[in-house]
Amino acid sequence: MNKSNSNVDFPLRAVLLQPDTAAGYDLGQWDLLVQQARGAGLLARVAALLREADLGDRIPPEVRWHLNSAFTVYRAHSDDVRLEVEHIARALKPAGVRPVLLKGAAYLAAGDRARLGRLYSDVDIFVPRDHIDAVEQLLRWQGWSGEELSAYDQAYYRRWMHEIPPLIHRSRGIALDVHHNLLPLTSRVKLDAEALAAGITPSDFPGVDVLAPSDRVLHSAAHLLLEGEFDNAFRDLSDLYLLLTELSAADPGFWDALPARAAELGLSRVLYYALRYLAQLLDLAVPPDVTARLQSAAPVAPVRWIMDRLFASALLPIAVTGQGGWPGFARFALYLRSHYLKMPLPLLARHLWHKAVITPFEYRQPDPAA
């Protein structure tokens, strides 16, 4: 990416890094900023950062209502998540379980800057695996339920994945993902949930906890780089940037501890990639000694060359790169990679065969009750 003209053709990036940049925009640049931010799910974050920089009087009236509307939605989302977390904590209290909030809800509960302008499609929690049955039953008693799944899909979640099937509250309509690990049990990238639990800390919300600061970074990086879904990739990259800049400024020992924690959890290569692309795409200042310590986790040069070109396209907003061509191929290739990493090849072949052939056949069968 040519950074020299990023203020012209990529105003979203410029404003995320330096909100004051927007003060000099003409109406055409404002229009492009709104388009890119909306497409990346970051319009509310742009609104929050501009408010924080006290630039309200520099925003054209034609643009102001877009930003104000997005900011209002962000505040409503935050209030909804706070309320939902209260319901979850109350539901699980009889089992003595304090759920650990993940991703966006965790940023909100921890007071991280990554909460700014963050919108929520669901709430994610992490609970001990030996409590998962009790947790699911208690949640169902309190109004959460899942869609009807085939026997195969139930087995897929419960035998191989790191979470139970998604739940939705019957009256409030908010989705809830319940994890007992942060990566699939069959994943080639292994993560020790017990080691993760050792770093859990209380949150600002009653009855719920969050991961340790370094672990919030590592989980965000793993979700971004291993899940294979890139619709919100640039938003997640922005989350990581805000997390790392805030946490490293608050704790002089943060950068020193982060690579060690990544090694302990088996996420050194994930951290290597995350810091590499944050430096390339968002100018994150990574200390040279941290980069040097992660070199042992780097892939061989040909793989690094390929990954650089795939991620350099896939992590940028679709509103900037477009859907097709090389960016579309890059997103598809990394989607295939995510499945390769999730399962051993024999299990993956079985899974793809079932989803491509067996599942469509089952849906074509007439309903005997009809």
Results as ranks from 00 to 15, higher is better:
L149A: 10
K93L: 14
S187K: 02
S171L: 14
A48H: 09
L336C: 15
P60F: 14
V8S: 02
G328K: 06
L12W: 01
D177I: 05
D54W: 04
L275P: 12
S69V: 10
N68E: 15
V63F: 09
A105D: 09
P259S: 12
L42Y: 03
L139W: 04
W255C: 07
E84K: 07
R98T: 15
L16Q: 05
P166C: 10
R58C: 15
H77G: 04
S145Y: 04
R90G: 08
Q365S: 05
R13M: 06
D80H: 13
A14N: 03
P128G: 06
A44I: 06
D20A: 14
L139P: 03
L16F: 06
E227D: 15
W141A: 13
L271Y: 05
L242Q: 15
H339V: 09
L139F: 08
R113L: 14
M307R: 10
P202Y: 10
T359Y: 07
L294G: 13
T359A: 11
D9C: 08
L347A: 15
D204F: 00
P94L: 04
P288W: 07
Q295W: 00
A212E: 05
L244C: 09
E62C: 10
G28T: 02
T321K: 03
L336T: 14
L267R: 04
N68S: 11
S338K: 09
R331H: 06
Y156Q: 04
Y241G: 05
D54S: 13
P346W: 03
R51H: 13
L176M: 02
A14V: 09
E264L: 01
A134R: 06
L347S: 14
M161A: 13
W326R: 14
H87R: 15
T201G: 01
H66M: 10
L284R: 02
V63D: 11
P302R: 09
F10Y: 15
Y277A: 02
H169A: 06
T21H: 05
A95L: 11
A285I: 03
P288D: 10
R64E: 15
G117E: 01
A22R: 07
P61M: 00
L92F: 05
H179C: 06
E62L: 14
A356Q: 08
L167D: 09
D130P: 01
G199M: 06
V270S: 00
Y107L: 04
G324N: 11
Q154Y: 07
S187F: 02
R140Q: 14
G266H: 04
A14E: 11
R216N: 12
S296T: 15
S214F: 00
L49G: 04
A155I: 11
N7R: 07
V127H: 02
A312P: 08
I125D: 08
L83D: 13
V81L: 11
D26P: 00
A314K: 00
V46W: 04
L341K: 02
D153A: 13
A319E: 07
F126Q: 05
L218G: 07
A369M: 09
M343Q: 09
V100F: 09
R350H: 08
R158G: 01
N5Q: 08
H87F: 12
V286Y: 00
A222M: 03
L347N: 10
A195H: 06
D192G: 04
L32Q: 13
G39S: 01
L183D: 01
V178C: 02
H66C: 12
E136D: 14
L116S: 10
F230S: 07
